[in-house]
Design a protein around this nucleic acid. Structure first.
Lengths: 211, 211
DNA sequence: GTCTATAAAAAGATAGAC
DNA sequence: GTCTATCTTTTTATAGAC
């Protein structure tokens, strides 16, 4: 009994260590650049053990993305206004590898590569990323819907989708800027981005009021 | 003499064929995903010939980026307003592989991967992409400067940089959306993006007028 | 300049002892 | 569950005949 428990705990511990290792590697090297040998070394295990815990590289990344998403859901349940969310996601891009040890932030850094690498079309990890991306988009739309009280339903619906699309494009765009090493003040541009979106909303609501 | 001329022409023709081949492959497969064997096959030449014309894979991509940039400079000398440029670059992202056979459009598709792949840090092709990215940014700033006549110099300078940064983030962001296969109307969002930036400018110029 | 054959290295994956 | 040794495939790159 005691042996069995210890064995199980050891297994979970190793699995977790491998996930942490692949997270750190993937943030720096991307999917193709992360080798199973690297992961094993960083986790302090032989490569054979990695394959004992995970079917293959593809599946390892699928579970990594799921893990990151779980963490994201728990830490991001709270955020309030659109401005706060943009502030968070854009200035976070700038924090480079420092904050990226955190799974929620790392998800995006790893994910963008999956979005762009068309050649990974049949890759299960890429498909998982796209599924999570869609799910997060729905969350963003739902949140936005609650932000325009008093406006008619169809206006609210359209506006919510528009804000979610624009917000996603801006955050993705600034993540690219961070990756490219652009020398800009991300904190300042997070505010500008929010200003821009807010004035779009104001214009649209004013149009509705005039109708 | 005749022989020498024919030889030279044949060489240039092959080199061009290889560049066209790597362009097509790279748009679909990215840097790592494009193999020298693929390129050779697509160009209708054996792999040995590819290495006769280009030192190695890295250098091949450096010359590809240069080639794309040359084409871009020639075709993009004209574009007028910010709205026109956003319209062009954002809706172009949506055109996927169709338009991407064109070097100027392909540059971005290929380049984004270089921006994101941190692990290619010492790669000369990545460095060339970043240099061109910076050069294009300067062009964008210079163009923007001409758009706010009557405003004081410091306001114009700041505004021009801001518009260039935001415009670049938006176009990069929508390129990511296109690569991820997001189901959105790119033409419509190009206009929305322009609206958002224009209202930012209007607000800022109004502030200045009040001072 | 073209083409074939092949070297050399890297990386994913498995076998099997412990 | 861990670890070593090894197989297999892929890919960059070169040698050398033509």
């Amino acid at each position: 009994m005691a042996t069995r428990r210890r064995t199980h705990r050891a297994s979970e511990t190793s699995k977790r260590a491998i996930l942490e290792a692949v997270l750190a590697q993937a943030v720096e090297a991307g999917y193709e650049g992360t080798t199973m040998a690297d992961v094993a070394r960083a986790a302090g295990l032989p490569i054979g053990s990695v394959y004992w815990h995970f079917q293959n590289k593809e599946q390892l990344f699928v579970e990594l993305l799921d893990y990151c998403f779980e963490v994201w859901k728990q830490t991001n349940a709270s955020f309030g206004s659109m401005r706060e969310r943009l502030r968070h996601s854009i200035s976070e891009s700038a924090a480079a590898s420092a904050l990226l040890a955190e799974p929620a932030a790392a998800f995006w850094s790893i994910g963008l590569v999956f979005a762009l690498e068309q050649r990974l079309q049949d890759n299960l990890a890429r498909q998982r990323y796209l599924a999570i991306r869609k799910e997060m988009f729905e969350v963003a739309v739902a949140r936005a819907r609650a932000s325009y009280p008093g406006a008619p339903e169809d206006v609210v619906a359209e506006l919510a989708v528009d804000m979610a699309v624009m917000g996603r494009a801006l955050t993705d765009g600034f993540r690219v800027a961070a990756a490219a090493g652009d020398d800009i003040d991300f904190v300042r541009y997070a505010e500008l981005a929010a200003d821009a979106l807010e004035s779009l909303v104001a214009t649209r609501l004013k149009e509705f009021a005039h109708d």
